[in-house]
């Protein structure tokens, strides 16, 4: 069992937990992920590590309530335990040698982008961060990004805070104005990452994307997280859990990944409603 030592509600649907997991805290690097189960018989879900404290032995996770499992997790309080917590899994984000980087985060993906921005900042790289949210209420981690970015652009889809528009807008503007980056690292919804890649393409800037497909074991055993990559005109299958989660954005078949992500859509909607009803009954 793994204890929740701190809980913070970042916005109405995004929650931050500090989990006591000393071995994971000692090892995890930016870009790696963990797999957890909330309770016995629960499903295994992957979440990218949002930070670690090796001294206290805690791992920070930030998640959005999107389905039954994250709903159940959101009801856990400080002092409660979760059943299983394993990691760090996957390959850390490659940061070596990067001098000037643009980080593009969308929604809860910003939580995963933050440790990467912080690591780059600590390496004295020049960090430009573009973070986007649907609206003002969903904004998270603005101050944290401010602290580690040389330039920060905050976007909201509806313009209820800062600039109106999606994250590709300032990215395009900067690239058009002649800004050049060693690398664009983008983390967020698949459709957003797809358009970040499309925006960067005319300028030939390398793009790293962080994939988060459905997975079970996280060690390569099940193959459920497979992605199709287009490498020099050849289709190659890769497993996000062991080969990723970071990939060259130009090689990813995003449409396929989006479709695979929806494979259990109906089941998940049903399960989510059932979980909500169950907790409502308990409250009554």
């Amino acid at each position: 069992m793994y204890k929740i030592v701190d809980k913070k509600i970042l916005n109405p649907t995004v929650i931050q937990l500090l989990i006591e997991a000393p071995l994971v805290a000692k090892k995890a690097k930016p870009g790696q992920f963990i797999i957890l189960r909330v309770d016995e018989d629960g499903e295994r879900i992957p979440l990218t590590v949002a930070g670690t404290n090796p001294e206290n032995g805690t791992v920070k996770i930030i998640f959005q309530v999107v389905g039954a499992t994250t709903k159940k997790l959101s009801y856990k309080e400080q002092g409660d335990c979760i059943q299983d917590f394993v990691g760090p899994l996957g390959v850390p984000t490659h940061l070596n040698g990067l001098k000037k980087v643009c980080i593009v985060g969308g929604g809860v993906g910003c939580a995963i982008a933050l440790p990467i921005a912080e690591a780059l900042h600590a390496m004295n790289a020049e960090v430009t961060s573009i973070i986007g949210f649907r609206n003002k209420d969903l904004l998270i981690l603005e101050n944290e990004f401010k602290a580690c970015s040389d330039t920060l652009r905050v976007m909201t889809d509806d313009g209820s805070y800062s600039e109106k528009g999606n994250v590709t807008l300032p990215l395009k503007e900067m690239l058009e104005a002649g800004e050049r980056f060693d690398m664009i690292i983008t983390i967020g919804p698949l459709v957003m990452m797809k358009y970040v890649v499309a925006t960067a393409k005319p300028y030939g800037t390398p793009v790293t994307v962080s994939m988060n497909p459905i997975m079970i074991d996280g060690t390569g055993m099940c193959g459920g997280c497979r992605l199709t990559l287009n490498v020099d005109g050849k289709k190659v299958t890769k497993f996000a859990c062991v080969d990723g989660p970071d990939f060259n954005g130009y090689e990813i078949d995003f449409d396929e990944a989006m479709s695979r992500g929806r494979m259990y859509g109906e089941f998940e909607r049903h399960k989510y409603e059932e979980t909500c009803n169950l907790y409502q009954k308990e409250v009554q």
Binding site: D41, I216, C222, G224, K271
Partner: peptide
Amino acid sequence: ESLNGVYSANEFLTRSNLMKSYRDNPETP
């Protein structure tokens, strides 16, 4: 092979056996 509904035997069996999706109303689909 990446269409929805294609499984490796490892994934199919792991879902059913380890994750107990053979039960009524499972957590794992």
